[in-house]
Design a protein around this nucleic acid. Structure first.
Lengths: 336, 336
DNA sequence: TTTTATTATACTCTATATGAGCATTATATA
DNA sequence: TATATAATGCTCATATAGAGTATAATAAAA
């Protein structure tokens, strides 16, 4: 049992302020150990997801430990917590490259209402789409797609060493980014991030390649001259975990009423819609959204009105918790 | 850092033979350590899910390690592997009760075609519904529901210490088992298992209570006289992991074409339907199922026919992999 | 005070998907 | 040749999604 494993917990803590989805980051303290450090050592990325190693003696469950981390590091009391995925690929944490034990982390998604941060002084809210600018389709089609991503993908496909590999690349790129035709799937967040990593369009790919070379580990092939990379990078595999979180969130949005965890107890349908749009990254049809929310029974009117709308006052609604029981099954295989 | 943690991997390996869903089990070797053993020490449950501790130096990814375990223990080459969940509750493994380190395991769902087992001589295929007899609604409504489960749930609700708790119990039972009305949700597999555990209708609840008392740990309150318990028990929290797997499988069935991983390359629509029914535990309308499969483009006719049907020969179909691209979004929030 | 801009809300229309059932076809067997 | 059995084809009613038009209630501008 050489080395053993180190088990950590990582939290993706999400809130929505107005129309902006936010995530909590803390400042990463990782430095390449001195013996390996050169003049051209790449600077580590400083945005990290809040996390800590799991202390088995202190917590009965992993979720309790996550709540404690969120409280300690961010001063937040989490409303909704859900396990995402356990990340265990070799070298996911650069410590491993320099003699550290194999590092695994269990990722969690947490939702909170917009609250002030306390705890660790480095904790702060950041715009989620700063990390994934290609994921926000609420306004125009994201400009980076046509200016950078699609051309780079086409070059990457053309550069395939053989025909079979070219076909595979074509298929992956088509599925993730829709090279031609339409059919952007908001849910393929992780697939897209991983493809960009592989193609070398995110800074982490270069950082990891450089660290691997420094440490003497066999390193990934990537162009020497770093092209323009996209989105704000994160320490370790933070952005991969964040991508998993956004993917899960978008998936669940459709069939579980989790948005309400992000809203105040009383809200207008427009606020509700803005939060959904912020997370799904798409625009919705207002009248139909309204019809759906009401007919599904997820909301009920309070009789009160919000008049700061700039137009006709909007009725205030509250979440109907019972609606979960009356839930209609998602698109189903036809029954009997 | 007292004790530390032990990280394992656990595989739920599923196949469908005809209309019977199967899962691989191996024989558990756990024994209560001698100093704690009494005359009335509960017998450990012998069905275990295949698993092993994670060897970080040998594997680049957790999934590689799972494939290796499946090969070593069961002689199987896994077609489809998907991470389920990481189980880390205190005492999920009885070793912990007797001084062992905190044990976590990462659960994986794997699908294979029906293959003979090799490897560990104790590996064998077992009927999945042997573990969850209340989950199979393909024939009659499962008899245990009315004969045992619902009455026990009603007693449990009535025995609540106060009104608030009674309401909570009522709500949970209604959601999971539909005390009255209709609306059985095939996907709430884990919720149902956990409720039965809490109510004391599965043998593991008694085993765990007894082991906790033996070890001196604070133990759960359960009736002294064990009532008739339901389904085949499993070692440790195997059945909880299995329930997660079935839940995930049923969920994915609706929007991802994973059934095809369980079928031979060429199959009739009836075979396809039987596999879906086996996993979902429900009956489907044959003509509509056919219409859906064809219109979604998931299958294409081969031109060949199967004549051992007992009636008109059935056309043989193959899976159309491209259909994944043309995928239609699941029940969606209305767009723009 | 009237007009205009703005947003909320109500309602309508159409295309499609789903749940259900009936009708027809192609086999094996009596 | 008749009968049982299963596969396949087709129709119909209803529900739901996507899209758009119409009306209502405000604040701010004219």
């Amino acid at each position: 049992m050489t080395g053993g494993t180190q088990l950590g917990l990582t939290a993706v803590i999400v809130a929505v302020v107005g129309a902006t989805p936010r995530v909590v980051t803390v400042r990463s303290t990782f430095e390449v150990p001195a013996p390996f450090r050169h003049d051209d050592t790449p600077l580590p990325h400083r945005d990290a997801l809040p996390g800590a190693s799991f202390a088995p003696e202190r917590f009965r469950t992993l979720q309790e430990a996550v709540r404690s981390i969120a409280d300690d590091l961010c001063g937040l009391s989490l409303r909704y917590v859900e396990q995402l995925y356990t990340f265990g690929d070799r070298f996911r944490d650069p410590h491993e490259l320099f003699g550290g034990a194999r590092s695994l982390t269990v990722g969690y998604l947490a939702l909170v209402r917009d609250d002030p941060l306390g705890g660790d002084a480095t904790a702060q809210w950041r715009d989620l789409y700063g990390y994934f600018p290609w994921e926000d389709w609420r306004g125009e089609r994201p400009a980076v797609l046509d200016s950078i991503i699609l051309p780079a993908l086409r070059r990457w496909i053309a550069a395939a060493p053989n025909e079979a590999e070219r076909a595979r690349r074509q298929e992956r790129a088509q599925l993730a980014f829709v090279l031609d035709g339409d059919g952007w799937d908001p849910e393929r967040v992780l697939e897209r991030y991983e493809l960009l990593y592989e193609v070398g369009l995110v800074a982490e790919a270069f950082r990891d390649g450089a660290l691997e070379r420094l440490s003497g580990a066999p390193s990934t092939e990537l162009p020497k001259d770093m092209p323009r990379t996209l989105g704000r990078p994160m320490a370790r595999d933070g952005r991969r975990i964040l991508a998993s979180a956004l993917e899960r969130l978008r998936g669940k949005l459709k069939y579980r009423p989790i948005v309400f965890e992000l809203l105040p107890p009383i809200f207008t349908l427009n606020q509700l819609q803005q939060v959904v749009e912020a997370l799904s990254g798409t625009r919705l049809h207002k009248q139909n959204f309204r019809r759906l929310m009401i007919s599904d029974g997820f909301v009920e009117p309070t009789g009160a009105f919000e008049s700061q709308t700039g137009g006709r006052p909007a009725e205030l609604f509250r979440f109907r918790r019972q609606a979960i029981h009356e839930r209609t099954s998602a698109r189903a295989i036809p029954e009997t």
